[in-house]
């Protein structure tokens, strides 16, 4: 709530005979909400944010509009810095994702960490699957690992950047098995798939929704899934643990944070709004369509998760030979 509105609201509250204590507990947004995302229009976080803004309106969960604000740059650092500057601003929230954890650990330029912001909720976990091309000789993840052991450095994985989820999965699997294979970065998801389907690489980690149609068309085969339990879409494919690899499951996390220093009742308000949203049919259908998992978590729990997740990520990065700056 902006300071300049305060006297008016105070006067209104007194006139209406509302006890001040009760007013302080009941935060209600009074103007459109600024919803900050770190990707440009069309990026993963942007699409999610615009979907949320639309669902809030459709399901009448939030009395005001949400306006998506793209603060791109710095692999999320620009958006995080922007949010940190908005200290105490109650009408701004942001969508975070895994890069908000890894970026500040790796980059000296990214000066703000998740600990500098107010955790609100965790929303979704995006599982992943490991795929090979349909004519690949590797029928299981074990086959691929054995091939990688026999030809060190010759097997190839098409992937994103260092520190991304597919990199983390590779590091964990290599550490667990002693195998070693090349990690070839492509900036766009389309290029990664094209490299696999063109037979230029052997394997990739992909979101199940993205792989779904290629699997149905018979171009790709799933050899393992990165999830705690089998996804409904792939009942016959083993999880990493079931396949005999004792490595932690690394989901892509997405959720909401707010600027630092906002009152407790505002956090509660947002927790309730998002709790309500996740119960709506629109949201449930969204999770189902995209094969996401419900990862809902409230602020206090999320706060603990942030600590644990940051430490795990830091450890994996260090093991992978990446310079850790904080």
């Amino acid at each position: 709530m902006k300071i300049r509105n305060f006297p008016i609201l105070l006067a209104l509250a007194v006139m209406a005979g509302i006890p001040l204590a009760a007013w302080a507990q009941g935060f209600k947004p009074a103007k459109p909400i600024e919803f900050v995302v770190h990707t440009g229009p069309g990026g993963g976080a942007d699409v999610l944010a615009r979907f949320i803004a639309n669902a809030m309106e459709k399901e009448k969960v939030l009395p005001v509009r949400m306006q998506v604000n793209n603060k791109t740059g710095g692999g999320g650092a620009t958006a995080m810095a922007y949010l940190a500057e908005k200290q105490g601003e109650t009408h701004t929230i942001a969508a975070y994702t895994g890069i908000w954890f890894t970026n500040p650990i790796m980059r000296a330029e990214a000066k703000h960490t998740m600990k500098d912001l107010t955790p609100v909720v965790r929303l979704v976990l995006e599982p992943a699957v490991i795929v090979v091309k349909n004519d690949s000789p590797h029928k299981s993840l074990r086959d691929f690992i054995e091939a990688a052991k026999q030809n060190p450095g010759q097997m190839k994985q098409s992937a994103g950047s260092i520190g991304a989820r597919d990199w983390v999965v590779r590091q964990l699997l290599m550490k667990n098995t002693g195998a070693n294979w090349a990690y070839i970065s492509f900036p766009g998801g389309g290029e990664r798939i094209a490299a696999l389907l063109g037979g230029h690489v052997n394997m990739m980690v992909i979101e199940p929704q993205e792989a779904g149609e290629h699997i149905r068309a018979g171009n790709m085969r799933v050899i393992a899934q990165i999830s705690d339990r089998r996804l409904a879409a792939f009942p016959d494919v083993p999880t990493l643990k079931e396949a005999g690899f004792d490595v932690p499951t690394v989901p892509q996390v997405r959720g909401i944070v707010a600027p630092p220093g906002i009152p407790r009742e505002v956090v509660t308000y947002w927790e309730d709004v998002f709790a309500k949203l996740t119960q709506t049919p629109t949201w449930k259908k969204y999770l189902e369509d995209n094969l996401f998992e419900d990862g809902f978590m409230r602020s206090a729990e999320l706060n603990k998760f942030i600590d644990v997740f940051s430490d795990t990520t830091r450890g994996i990065l260090k093991d992978g030979g990446i310079k850790v700056v904080r």
């Binding site: 791109t72 740059g73 710095g74 692999g75 650092a77 620009t78 810095a81 980059r107 000296a108 330029e109 990214a110 000066k111």
Partner: peptide
């Protein structure tokens, strides 16, 4: 040059 704006 230490600028987060230049990271991309």
């Amino acid at each position: 040059f230490g600028h987060a704006e230049l990271l991309d």
